[in-house]
Write a protein that binds this DNA or RNA. Structure first.
Lengths: 230, 230
DNA sequence: AGGGCTTAGTGCATTAATTCACAAAGTCAA
DNA sequence: TTGACTTTGTGAATTAATGCACTAAGCCCT
């Protein structure tokens, strides 16, 4: 009815679509043309009904009795996730992690080229790391404009992370991936996603501890990650 | 009734406890002694009832009319998460990301010292990165035993990640943090948590795309991450 | 042409997570 | 000691996510 209305896809499903996409890429690389929801479910480690339901949010792109076509579904997932184009990335914070991410192959290969890296430390500005020269965070606004950058990645210290976020917002960025262990505040029009590597280990620690306490007879719950951004 | 039975804490709550802990550390650093669920909720960006319910899984550690004590609650959360001790970490894969994580301050500072880093590439074995010498993945078993390592972090290429996981399991590791964009298979007695940095950007891309299509009038859903391990 | 087989799509029951809203339990001031 | 005020802890309602089980559709073989 309502024209142009995008299907509202549940957050939990959105978080799984990239996983399916990754698996489809692998299937394509091994010349698989078709697959069933059962097969994809096994590869993704989830329930087959969930796979079918997730894919059904995209539309009705399978064939009953046959399955889904790898290339066609790949296309549909990429369209839904906005991956028909590249999104340029700027890294804020040229420390260990920032420089590693600037070089990180997994960003470029999935359509997120790191175009620029900036810092506020005069000692770091001007250094070169893998074909990128560290810029001044003060120039963020012009860099973002000139290089058509959409996404900012924060790899500063905790202390500097909110200032980095403010600078990104000020520069017109609307999507932020934050690695600092801080709950950032930003306008609600900006998507913020935080990955705290320490938290990941702490969650593992919880299960490790539990194993010790219970004598490892307890089951380990499946990993579930929900999409969403603040 | 059942003695020694650990309260079953929902996965979603476990994933939030480290966030609360981080905030409590900040409060302690600024000499705050007490806080209310409302205050913590504001700092964590969640609902106050959720904070209270999450904390209630630990026990009844607040005081009605007053709030919670920073140091006492910090202690309780750490106890629950198994953070009263350190957990030694080995990094498998001495590429950009692996080396950066080996140096990464956020691991050590939260009680997860990286004790060793290994690779299978003879060209990398023997190199030194921030006081650690890259070891041979073949020696993983003895390294894990001798250094009392509990957690393995996989930063290899996708192609090598399953072999790395197998090697870790073979070496007796029961908790794995995987950065390769692959769904690893491992015995159910082993906790596996995957962080795919590309996926994080793809999720942001989805919202970015949505903003473009809808003219940015749509609300952005809050980030939700659920704990668990496979 | 028809019947058996396979698999997508989905309504519905179940389970998990969130949020509301209020009683219980404390503080503090007079 | 009482009464006003604050804030926890938690039943109960709500919302979201999951998974079952069945229907609808298409393929393939005879």
């Amino acid at each position: 009815m309502t024209q142009l209305q995008r299907r509202k896809i549940p957050d939990a499903a959105i978080a799984r679509l990239p996983v399916y996409l990754q698996i489809l890429n692998n299937l394509a690389a091994t010349n698989v043309l078709r697959f069933s929801s059962d097969e994809l479910a096994a590869l993704a480690g989830v329930n087959a009904a969930k796979v079918r339901k997730d894919l059904s949010y995209l539309g009705s792109y399978g064939t009953r009795g046959v399955g889904y076509e790898v290339t066609y579904l790949t296309h549909q997932i990429k369209r839904e996730l906005g991956l028909m184009r590249e999104w340029n990335v700027v890294v804020v914070g040229a420390g260990n992690l920032g420089c590693a991410l600037a070089k990180f192959d997994g960003f470029l290969s999935r359509g997120f080229p790191v175009i620029a890296i900036v810092d506020n430390d005069p000692k770091k500005i001007g250094r070169t790391t893998s074909s990128l020269t560290v810029g001044d965070v003060k120039d963020l606004k012009s860099i973002v404009r000139d290089e058509k950058i959409s996404i900012g990645v924060i790899t500063t210290s905790s202390a500097a992370s909110q200032a980095a976020a403010d600078a990104l917002v000020e520069a017109g960025i609307t999507s932020i991936l934050n690695f600092a262990p801080v709950v950032l505040s930003a306008p609600s029009s900006v998507s913020v996603r935080s990955v705290d590597l320490g938290v990941e280990l702490q969650i593992l620690s919880y299960f490790e501890q539990m194993r010790l306490e219970t004598g490892s007879k307890s089951e380990i719950a499946p990993q579930l990650n929900t999409a969403g951004a603040r």
